[in-house]
């Protein structure tokens, strides 16, 4: 039964992402008809509909897919490596540090100086967090050291973020920052797509190369190492891959939580719990979830700019609580 489900899973997920992508393209306050919208998208001549479709909705839908793929895959990879179903990229401080980088850029005004400043600052934050974690965890550090290093980095990033907001002389910039941190895909352009895509693509390639290593880690570090898995190489690849994915996603969309946590949980039974197979499945699942949530923000409160990160947290947190309870009951 599991095998049939597993085989049907990927086509189903791809179909789901494709459908949600089109629904996302056709959803918005402008109220064009579906036929008119798609015609404008493909063969438009520079009128208002074409502009909305090509410059607003298309990048938004593409970013939804990119951010979802990155967050879903990162969560599955981290859980596989730590062998802990409750782990998520936020745990090792990459999201927090990426947000810190972005906030510093917003507060100092660097973000306004040129278009790529904000994403570059977030990527820098993610990179610094990655290097710090590597230095802290050391060459022979196990999973526990990595988690502790991640908690320390998260705490530091959070403290520094509060400090930046605390010392901010400009209340307008503070509110802009807080809104940015809520996480959203609205008002994004192809510039955001192009700045995020190269980093994400590198991240996906790195993480997907770890499939077999993560499978072998099911048996523990000692057994995996004796199976010929290079643990240091695995750890380095994992951290750089996650930093690239989460850093780029945070840079263009702000802080969006729970994707990397909830999606792997839901999809794990459908891939026979294999960490290697879970990564691509969670990536597609993440894309579907982010697209669906982004569509929902436009349908629930169209005139109030409901933030994607807020909606995801409201839906994700209770589901997460349920998962903790279920995990405890099953003793996994």
């Amino acid at each position: 039964m599991t095998r049939t489900m597993s085989r049907a899973l990927f086509p189903l997920l791809i179909a789901l992402v494709a459908i949600l992508f089109f629904v996302s393209l056709l959803t918005g306050p402008a109220g064009f008809g579906p036929g008119e919208s798609l015609r404008a998208l493909i063969s438009g001549q520079g009128d208002a509909v074409t502009l909305v479709m090509r410059e607003i909705r298309l990048p938004r839908a593409i970013l939804g897919i990119l951010v979802g793929l990155s967050l879903g895959m990162s969560g599955a990879a981290l859980q596989g490596y730590l062998r802990n179903p409750l782990a998520e990229p936020g745990l090792i401080g990459v999201s927090g540090s990426a947000a810190l980088g972005a906030v510093i850029a917003l507060q100092t005004g660097i973000a306004a100086s040129f278009a790529l400043a904000l994403p570059l600052a977030a990527l820098t934050g993610a990179l610094i967090a990655t290097l710090l974690i590597l230095a802290l965890a050391g060459p022979r550090g196990g999973s526990l050291t990595l988690i502790l290093a991640g908690i320390a980095i998260s705490a530091l990033a959070s403290a520094l973020l509060s400090l930046v907001l605390n010392l901010s002389p400009n209340p307008f910039a503070v509110s802009e920052t807080i809104f940015w941190m809520l996480g959203s895909l609205s008002d994004r352009s192809f510039t955001h797509v192009w700045i995020a895509l190269p980093f994400m693509a590198i991240g996906w390639a790195l993480l997907l190369s770890l499939g077999r290593s993560l499978d072998a880690l099911t048996l523990g570090e000692d057994a995996a190492s004796a199976l010929g898995i290079r643990l240091k190489h695995t750890r380095l690849t994992l951290i750089v891959g996650i930093a690239a994915c989460v850093g780029a996603a945070t840079a263009v969309a702000g802080a969006i939580g729970f994707v990397g946590l909830v999606v792997p949980h839901i999809l794990r039974p459908f891939v026979g719990a294999r960490p290697g197979r879970l990564m691509p499945a969670s990536a597609l699942g993440g894309a579907a979830l982010v697209l669906a949530a982004d569509i929902a923000t436009r349908l629930i409160l169209p005139e109030r700019d409901l933030k994607l990160g807020v909606l995801m947290a409201i839906v994700g947190a209770p589901l997460f609580l349920h998962l903790i309870y279920k995990t405890r009951r099953e003793g996994i």
Binding site: T2, R83, R212, D215, A216, L217, T218, L219, G220, D222, A223, A226, L227, G228, I229, R268, G272, A273, R274, P275, I332
Partner: peptide
């Protein structure tokens, strides 16, 4: 190498787990 700690991190099928020996 068969370590003393009998670690099986995920609820994978027995056959899948044994196949890890072929890695």
């Amino acid at each position: 190498w068969l370590p003393q700690a009998r670690e099986i991190a995920w609820p994978v099928a027995v056959e899948t787990l044994v196949t890890l020996g072929r890695v």
